[in-house]
Amino acid sequence: MWKRETSTDRKFFILIFVLFLNLFIMSFNIILKNEKSLIENIASTLLSPVQVGFQKTIDFLSYEFKHYVFLKNMFTQYHELKKKHKQLKYKNYLLRKKLNQSNFLSKVNRDDPSFMGAEVISVDNNFPYNNIYINRGLSHGIKKNMVLINEDGELVGRVIDPITLISAKVRLITSSTGGVGAYIKKNKLEGFLTGSDQKICQFKYLLENAPVSIGDDVITSGTDQLFPPYLPIGKVVGIEKEYLTQTIYVKPFFIEKSIKQLVIMMNPLKKGEK
């Protein structure tokens, strides 16, 4: 009887201790002002080599299988064409940007950003529109607030902490934390686009009489000093008018596309720069 009670007590104490430990870690870890979390950094540093290791193994096995099973030459040619295609897309984006800059931002003196490819190694499967992890980190020159775009040059998100040597966390523009300075391309109606961890973002508190139509393009304004201007974000998919204001619903372009391969813009905006 006494032994059984001791065993039950022991179980109870272990349970309470472990639950309390988790609650303590949780409270220590809640990010209130987007500050670095030490525990998240440690967990990221320990687990990211495993993720990247598995990803490289999968890529290697997949590559070897394709390489030897399918026609060797066709495979090589396909990759070369794909690489050229990507390079032309990036050049196209740069040229379009230069065109816009020459019209509107002639006073801005800014170097053209260079690009680095990245692969997504992990997606939060419970909240897939919140954060992702990429296989580039400090050893590749990745820094906080670097912007990520997809293969079509459309905005995806930005790098946030934790950044390890070989991986980095990316906050998507659909995340409920943070937002993007944006405007409707047609009429330059400016606002702050926020996510809600869903597929659709929202422009809130715009004046009700501002003309907006479904299908209008939305691009970055650069006023948030985080994202460069003129990056395509998405299209207007809904408008909800209230008494004096309206809420505009925007579906980002990247939602319907694969985000396995992304591009990092290597020069984050400097403070005060637009």
Partner: peptide
């Protein structure tokens, strides 16, 4: 770690 990043929730 694989989800929203708040360590402790699923631990609990």
């Amino acid at each position: 770690f694989f989800t929203i990043g708040l360590v402790g929730v699923f631990g609990f």
